[in-house]
Design a protein around this nucleic acid. Structure first.
Lengths: 260, 260
DNA sequence: CAGTGGTCTAGACCACACT
DNA sequence: GTGTGGTCTAGACCACTGC
């Protein structure tokens, strides 16, 4: 929009009494528009989105402005650029990002060399949300939620015991059967079957002692130190969609983190 | 270099037999040049670096190319942009990034509300590097290293016990005295006194049981689960300059991580 | 006011993928 | 070749800082 006011906000009119000017650069507005299309499911994970030139024409801005908007989306891992091909909606269903949110690595060798995890579902139940779960998932206590418990093993050694809580409304029809028959990562299933794409997650880590139940599932003595990982995963708009509480054995694995 | 070949590499001539074309875009070359000035200490932490226009003239490229180079440096936290003022070399000596690499948070309240940590040095000795330390610091076994051990307490509760290993050559004259008298974060001291700026760090986390020595220092029963954090911090060029092994109490704190 | 980084545009050419 | 993203340029104007 070269002729019109380039700082015009495409969103709601600014409240005069507001202390924040609510100004946002054009490329941020374009980014929001693209984000809305992603949220609305207009372009699904794995899809090719329109080219930069196409979007520039559609939004009546220059290609450079669209580029900057897409640059940010790419840096947030929401889209993936491929030179010569186009820009694609990011997905968990790709081999190289199979366990994008799992930071546990074998002490020796790579995650790849270890091969895929053996998954076994303990149970998958519909429940009413306890107060703490409801709070972190932005639900009300007693709302329907899905609880999944499972164990992941590497090279036959049970290593991760985890419990997932999902909002019942978004995951109707999710059963232990479907989880068991599905090949590949859970987040890929959420995408293809329920249209829920996890975009960002926050984790809280602690060291705890294994209680008897956990010790049995992980085949370690009770009291063994375990890494407790509480994860809240969010979809677009930072809406919390999963609470995951895990216990990791760290006798032959470690949690890897990189600080920039 | 608009008139010359814009893809010409400013670095060494390409080996004809090389399989990698060793092509790098102009802005990457500019980025390398700026990086070299940072490494050489030509611009020190906190310094204002030359303006984009100045650098563009110096390197004979457009401002946009310099901008893209600086954009990357800024996204890697090597440099900080301030509109209207200029671009500054990033530093650990700022209040808001006092503990940039410390991810331990109190369960309730914020790190700020808890106030500064109480630091107490256990000892600070010159040693010969054990094999494992030498390996991670890219030294030879037996090379001189500095070993520092200390405890950090929050609100009077000892919470972190850690042991640091530093290459002796880069930290001549570092004593328990200087550590004790220095206000503020250790990495700030490294910058101002030794010209060593930590840029990136990798951590490996595990849950372990407190041994008697650790238990005593942290005032917990032996066998208490502790979060073991092994950190390797790097300067420019990804040169490893510090090995830090910590044990964190996680009874009223947790390690926070964000997965994008 | 001048100088800085921040945004936006328009057009050129390059590298890559597919047909 | 055509179309895509990737790089580079040149110039305009905006927003912020400090004189």
């Amino acid at each position: 929009m070269p002729e019109s006011n380039p700082t015009a906000d495409l969103s709601l009119p600014t409240d005069e009494a507001s202390v924040t000017p609510a100004f946002s650069p054009l490329y941020q507005q374009i980014k929001s528009l693209i984000l809305q299309s992603l949220q609305a499911g207009q372009w699904k994970p794995g899809d090719l989105i329109p080219s930069e030139i196409e979007l520039a024409g559609r939004y009546r801005v220059s290609q450079g402005t669209v580029r900057k908007a897409i640059d940010e989306l790419a840096s947030e891992n929401l889209v993936v650029r491929r030179q010569g091909k186009g820009t694609f909606v990011a997905t968990h269903a790709e081999q190289q990002v199979q366990y994008r949110f799992l930071r546990l690595m074998p002490d020796r060798g790579s995650a790849a060399s270890e091969g895929p995890a053996q998954r076994s579902i303990i149970d998958c139940k519909r429940q009413r949300a306890p107060a703490d779960v409801a709070r972190t998932l932005a639900l009300r206590t007693g709302d329907p939620v899905l609880q999944v418990r499972r164990v992941l093993a590497f090279r036959g050694v049970p290593t991760i015991l985890e419990e997932l809580w999902l909002p019942g409304s978004a995951f109707k029809g999710l059963t232990a059967e479907r989880l068991a028959t599905h090949e590949g990562a859970m987040y890929a299933l959420f995408e293809t079957e329920f249209g829920v794409r996890m975009v960002r997650a926050d984790e809280k880590l602690r060291a705890v002692a294994a209680d008897t139940a956990a010790a049995e599932k992980l085949q370690v003595p009770a009291g063994t130190p375990l890494l407790s990982v509480e994860r809240v995963a969010h979809t677009y708009q930072d809406i919390p969609m999963e609470l995951r509480r895990g216990f990791y054995r760290t006798d032959s694995h470690h949690y890897r983190n990189s600080l920039g």
